[in-house]
Design a protein around this nucleic acid. Structure first.
Lengths: 333, 333
DNA sequence: GCTCCTTATGCAAGCGCTTTCATTGACGGA
DNA sequence: TCCGTCAATGAAAGCGCTTGCATAAGGAGC
């Protein structure tokens, strides 16, 4: 790579070239409206000519606003959060804020390290999908930025929360499939965290309608297409074959449909399938997949709005934002 | 959120508490081995007691090493790069380096803004999947960090490149399907960038074997499951129905299989399908999908190694690293 | 015993910005 | 004409670290 022979220009250089003080250039950069039009023109020219790129580390240090937001998710591949992340990153990028992506894995422990790393970089906000341990919650008390928990609505979030009720989803799903006439549901669910909450909601909800027990099948988190073979095999082993299977993700639902087809079972006539997440595949699959839609982009927008208002010194209006969910009835159930 | 009543501790405070100078604490933080064992113990205790979190913005400013790497990709959802990104982030996080994720979209223009944003934050490296425009290449000349282009091997990368040859993939795929006995290939490809290169390689390669023209079907980038319906319809409209369809992604391949099944066509007997990327679904689908495997994690590891050596002042060994690819023959073709 | 290293540490000058406070000049009103 | 106001700008003190240079103390070699 070519190394520049001269050091990169700094604010001083631009100021000198434009014949103003560094303060004025700084103002131009951060708040163009408060410098005189003529001055602005000269500064703009100087910046252009020198190819000046402001050092935002220095700026952040001086202003203690880093224009960075940390986002913590367990994984990236096959993640339910991809649309949320994508929307957050796009919107924030457009506003000049960058997103630091931190992967915490499914085990605990790494979350705290990532939060420290984020705090050390003076991020304006930390957005996390994972609930916090007691130690981490203590750590967050010293964090001057905004802490946002997403995809869930804990009763007492350490900062603010933007999400929805997993219990309610389970509950509504139970009613939904009962009303559609299904009577022997199987529930494929991971055993931890939110999947667990949905499971609890579902089982409780189902008990309100029927005495038939819910057949439960556990999978690793997150629910994936690859689980389908084993899950389907287990379904077939049941003495009373379930008439509907409720999955923890659309890709697992898709996998079940594929397995059912391969086994010559008609979906939904012989086995109905319900997904979760409304991934794009849910509407493209044949049959199209009945699923629960979470508006991930909406979560992102709420988070971004909260971050923006926090940065400009306004306290967020509410501790919790419930973006809700929607059961989308399609062909598969 | 609870606001701390006292300001967060800084290096000075830790130094005072440990009875040493700030220089020593700084050394302890960055290079523990060079401080005396006893001193280290006291400093460690002070840090612990005060819950000290170093300000890495200040550190980065002083040292001009930010321990941040920017990664530029077009999209996050349905991205071929997810495994590469995931591995990069995980490995770098483990070493205390954070990843700034920037989304450039498919249109040009945003790339330059993202590169500026990254440079302004003094990142140690910029990793980009997109080729650079002339202006952006000029901009990069002033970038003191490492620029890494991934998923491609341009002849003269602005920095270094880690990738593979798309032309070669197309070429090898043509031979592969010819050797498997297929004679009327359809190629479903986006018309831009690398998909275009694979297409060119394929067509050239095919011409070496057969006079039958390759039936080409264009789709938007990136190739998605959702394109399958239209593509399949178009395939059926052909007077000479293709016997194999080569897709730009595994999810599109999967979609084609679903459509074929729905139409009562047997895969691969009546229509063979080839994917690209070896997503997890490729091995889980029924039939399993013949595809091209790119070792995204390997790309990430090569990138990380280059970044590490660059940061420690060692020039990378080579301008280009070819991680190759592998055609995986499965049931679908 | 003296000199010369080596190791551990301290001093203090930045790193490149932001922002408070002060200053200047122009303008409108009385 | 004079004063108050306001818009535009400048001077300079940080923001919280890192690091080159200097120093001190101990040990080895003669």
């Amino acid at each position: 790579m070519v190394r520049p022979s001269t050091r990169n220009p700094k604010l001083d250089d631009v100021a000198a070239r434009a014949g103003v003080s560094t303060a004025t250039v700084s103002r131009f950069l951060n708040n163009p409206d408060i410098v005189a039009a003529g001055t602005a023109v000269r500064i703009r020219a100087a910046i252009e000519e020198m190819q000046y790129v402001p050092n935002l580390l220095a700026g952040g240090l001086a202003s203690s606003r880093s224009k960075m937001v940390a986002v913590l998710i367990p994984h990236l591949v096959d993640s339910l959060f991809d649309r949320t992340i994508e929307t957050m990153v796009e919107e924030l990028n457009a506003g000049g804020t960058m997103v630091m992506l931190a992967l915490t894995g499914t085990a605990a422990g790494r979350t705290e390290a990532m939060i420290r790393a984020a705090m050390g970089r003076q991020v304006d906000a930390i957005v996390s999908t994972a609930p916090l341990s007691a130690e981490t919650t203590a750590l967050i008390q010293h964090f001057p930025g905004l802490f946002v928990q997403i995809w869930d609505l804990p009763a007492e979030p350490p900062g603010i929360a933007v999400g929805f009720s997993h219990v309610e989803i389970g509950h509504d799903l139970a009613r939904f499939i009962y009303e559609r006439g299904y009577r022997r549901p199987a529930l494929v669910s991971a055993e931890l965290g939110r999947a667990r909450l949905r499971r609890d909601g579902f089982v409780k909800g189902w008990e309100a309608h029927s005495d038939t027990p819910v057949k439960e099948i556990a999978v690793d988190s997150p629910s994936r297409f690859g689980h389908a073979r084993r899950v389907f095999a287990e379904l077939r082993r049941q003495p009373e074959r379930p008439d509907v299977v409720v999955c923890g993700s659309d890709s697992l639902a898709q996998g079940i449909i594929v397995e059912a087809n391969a086994a010559g079972l008609k979906v939904p006539d012989q086995l109905a399938v319900v997904g979760f997440g409304n991934a794009s595949v849910a509407s493209d699959m044949r049959p199209t997949i009945t699923t629960v839609e979470i508006d991930g982009a909406q979560i992102a927008r709420e988070v971004n709005a909260a971050v923006r208002s926090h940065v400009s010194g306004v306290a967020p209006k509410q501790r919790s934002v419930n973006v809700g969910f929607r059961i989308i009835a399609r062909e598969s159930a």
